[in-house]
Design a protein around this nucleic acid. Structure first.
Lengths: 158, 158
DNA sequence: CCTTGAGTTGAAGTGAACTTCAACTTGCAG
DNA sequence: CTGCAAGTTGAAGTTCACTTCAACTCAAGG
């Protein structure tokens, strides 16, 4: 596709593009990981006449997105799906972004609520000065899981 | 006689204990995972005379803690360390809990902040109606990463 | 032109977190 | 007692997310 384009040697296209080493340094992601992401279709790279990758600055943003999303517990496959919803050949429309953002906002809100729950339970353990978990808020957290129905499964990143 | 001989004091062991299948059903965690957790020292089980596991209700709470912590991105090894700080043979003291909780509170607060940042960046993309990422808040998120110093690495659970 | 560091590939290796398998035993209902 | 679902073990297999390796090529300074 458009991005398979090969830049002519010594073309001014070099301006604003990065080698894989530069992108690795700037993003904090290993070059091997960047190649891996490319194989999975998460990022794209142009090529020099000598077959070396050249990244546009925009890829830095994608990589940042990927790493942050990973910390939230999203799999690379899910991240790819999200990034795929951004059209590659044209500028994303407001609708494209609204769709992607809405989906992720819910996901992130859920996640924040879950972590706050865990945090508050732990804090409660300090606050109430309980010496055993028997009557602790953490115990109730466990019960809440059971209350989510038979075979209830936490939404784990898998 | 009965198979309860393994339990101390001839206590009414059957009361309040669960089989691995029951714990799996109640916690939503596969039996194979529970055995795995036991091998790693995250949970403990008593045994019947016939060598079958019997779990006390307290283990349900531990399992819930494990699964929630996992969603926060904590490795099983780290969870084990945390759980190990709870004395097994005696009732945890307030100090035990304060220590564990303080450590985790920070971890969780960091995590919440990170996720909120990602969420707010995404929301910004809707709000500002930007049609490309060029000037989007998400782009700045990427820059912020770069600004964290040379070789900056996101704190990934690894 | 030569050297050298950076980049290329496919294949194989790694570690975490489990699951599956095979072969066997237990425990409870009837 | 019999039948059989549920439990036991160690070993091997799986998936994800990479990293490492070997064997090469490329790009740029001197």
């Amino acid at each position: 596709m458009t991005h398979a384009s090969v830049w002519p040697d010594g073309a001014p296209a070099a301006t604003g593009t990065m080698t894989i080493g530069q992108l690795a340094a700037r993003s904090g992601v290993a070059a091997s990981a960047l190649r891996y992401y490319e194989r999975l279709g998460l990022i794209r790279a142009g090529r020099t006449g000598g077959n070396q990758r050249r990244y546009e600055r925009a890829e830095l943003r994608r990589v940042a997105f990927i790493r942050i999303a990973q910390q939230v517990g999203v799999s690379l496959e899910e991240i790819r799906e999200a990034l795929d919803s951004l059209p590659e050949s044209r500028t994303p429309t407001a609708a494209d972004w609204a769709q992607l953002s809405a989906t992720w906002r819910n996901r992130l809100d859920e996640r924040i609520r879950l972590i706050e729950k865990l945090r508050d339970n732990l804090t409660g353990c300090i606050g109430c000065g309980c010496l055993s978990l028997q009557k602790c808020a953490l115990y109730n957290a466990g019960d809440a899981l059971g209350a989510e129905g038979p075979g209830a499964r936490l939404m784990l990143p898998r």
